[in-house]
Design a protein around this nucleic acid. Structure first.
Lengths: 359, 359
DNA sequence: CTGTTAGCGCATTCAG
DNA sequence: CTGAATGCGCTAACAG
């Protein structure tokens, strides 16, 4: 029914082993036989049986990319970049060492994160790329760490992209479980952003943070507070609100912030999507941006220029980082061994949504 | 090193066959032994070897979801919905018939679409869900059709979500290759939208279409033209511009449209993202929406309410459709056999971005 | 450079 | 209800 390696071997008049060798290209084969085999493959329209080869080789060509929210471009951009890096820039490779890069959506749920990790473990995945902030819950961190350790032990490469090195959680295991870490410099980026606002004369600044217990949320908030402290300002907890990384959160937050501080002149959002919500709410109230209120975001997503004026934000090279993660996940000789950490810079981008403080 | 089924069997004092049976739960096993096995599984922290079981069973638990652009929420929403439907609402199931739903980003490239299909075929995927519009190129359609036929022949379920039934391409194969089709009613939705504008007195309406040779692009444009024709208006090709489904395309299009027709009073965009670009361009030119220019989109993405005023658009139940596709891909008894088609309705949503024609 | 020989770990017959 | 035997399709030593 379905054509197998043996069929190809038969038709090409060679042994199955030889066919396997030309297909995997990791062994010397005479050009003549190689051509013959390739022809047989084409004639029979043969497609390797993944499970069988994975079983025999004890490793598969699956690479899993875990994201917190697939509907959010922040993750979409990184995942897309990683995927195109892994599957080849334009789906070129034929039967070769082609990897299957797939993205798994955890929806921010700890359980699903673990479930996917188990599923990937079951598939004997070649690599796993974890993107975005991690949940800061001791129990869950420990569970994830344990799972990753097992994955690593089974030969799966672990790449962290935009997630702090595991050791930082305090809980965690020999760094030997992680192949490489791309750490976003959220803290410095956030600090620069708030410094920018302080330079413009703002002193009453609202902050719309992400969900609590997320590393990204915490680091960005810390950067904000660092800037405030250095400027000698006291941090007012009432001016920081937590919520999901979405537009609605920003929209709702502005009203609350104005109640807490009628003299508010600026709002920093934990990401661009939230900032867009803040902008919309400001417009609805007749507040001009930036004359009456300065608004800033984070990430520099394409939509940061969707609003008028365009958003001042902190640019994170998401595409580049994703591509790099894809490379680290599949390259033959990873640039560095276990425990390797690269810091991805965050750059302040000043646009029209921030201006001098009005009061 | 890695624990196998045999290890579990040994510890539970049963045969490997029995362990297999309790794990797959599709065979009667005494409650006592079942419990014993489960305990052994837990004690040993056993994880099924996917490739091995896929090889033996001749089918895997992999479900592939193909999307054109993972950074676009249009796809993200559908993919996320399908994925959560497949992997269980909250990653509950343990060792059971858990499927691994993964999304593959083709980036709109025909080659990559085919590559992913091959990779999925290689993995003996349980199902494949193709989302979004298809590319209308005879050669490519034929290649995809052939590939899908092979997948289907190998037992993989094929679900089309937001993509017209294959037969419509004209090229294509016995409907028996496709398990089910969820067809978006783009045509009717587009017609309703343009009718809405006509009712408001608009007669010079610009249309910013998607890329040429895409079913979605064509259907939406046809709906637009249908409405024009029924109203007795002549269709002016100069008022239709093609471009990618992104913001920049809409932004650039407005300028061109105004050159082609200075008396333009309305612009219909092929999707919300393009519409947002049109809105931004309008604001930059000092055109008030909707007083000077009415703008409408399509899809009703969350960002449709990001602009002020909010976008009049056509709502597509993306989440519901994605979830439905996920269900059809995994449910034991698909609601209907091969060639089954469900039409997903498109509903007009009138908001503030459209108003009476000014001239 | 190429053929032979063994399994990889699990799902199934088929007996009992 | 449970155990024993067989093979899924391929890769990886080993020889030649």
């Amino acid at each position: 029914m379905t054509v197998t390696l043996a069929d190809v071997a038969h038709r090409a008049q060679v042994s199955p082993a030889t066919v396997s060798r030309v297909l995997n290209g990791n062994y010397p084969v005479a050009e003549a036989t190689r051509a013959r085999v390739l022809r047989a493959v084409a004639d029979l329209d043969y497609v390797v049986n993944g499970p069988a080869s994975a079983l025999a080789a004890a490793t598969s060509d699956l690479v899993g990319i875990l994201v917190n929210d697939i509907a959010d471009p922040f993750f979409g951009i990184m995942a897309g970049a990683a995927q195109s890096r892994i599957s080849g820039p334009d789906g070129t490779a034929r039967t070769g060492g082609e990897k299957l890069a797939v993205v798994c959506n955890t929806g921010g749920s700890p359980e699903r994160e673990l479930t996917y990790l188990t599923l990937l473990q079951r598939q004997r995945a070649a690599a796993v790329i974890l993107t975005g902030g991690a949940i800061e819950d001791t129990e869950h961190s420990a569970a994830v760490a344990a799972k990753l350790a097992k994955l690593a032990a089974a030969g799966t490469r672990i790449i962290l992209c935009g997630r702090p090195a595991l050791t930082e959680g305090g809980v965690l295991p020999g760094s030997s479980t992680v192949t490489a870490t791309l750490s976003f410099d959220n803290r410095t980026g956030a600090r620069r952003l708030t410094e920018h606002l302080l330079t413009l004369g703002h002193t009453r600044i609202g902050y719309v943070a992400g969900p609590v217990e997320r590393t990204t949320t915490r680091h960005r908030l810390e950067g904000h507070r660092d800037a405030l402290r250095e400027a000698g300002l006291v941090y007012d907890p009432a001016l920081t609100l937590h919520g999901p990384y979405d537009r609605a959160s920003g929209h709702a937050a502005l009203a609350q912030l104005l109640v807490a501080e009628p003299d508010l002149t600026a709002v920093v959002a934990a990401n661009d999507t939230i900032a867009l919500g803040v902008c919309a709410a400001a417009r609805e109230r007749g507040l001009r941006i930036p004359e009456d209120l300065s608004v800033a975001g984070f990430d520099d997503l394409p939509s940061a220029t969707d609003t008028v004026p365009a958003l001042t934000t902190v640019r994170l090279p998401l595409y580049e980082a994703g591509a790099r993660a894809g490379l680290l996940a599949t390259t033959a000789n990873p640039p560095a061994g276990p425990g390797y950490v690269e810091t991805v810079p965050a750059e302040l981008v000043v646009r029209g949504s921030t201006g001098r403080a009005s009061k």
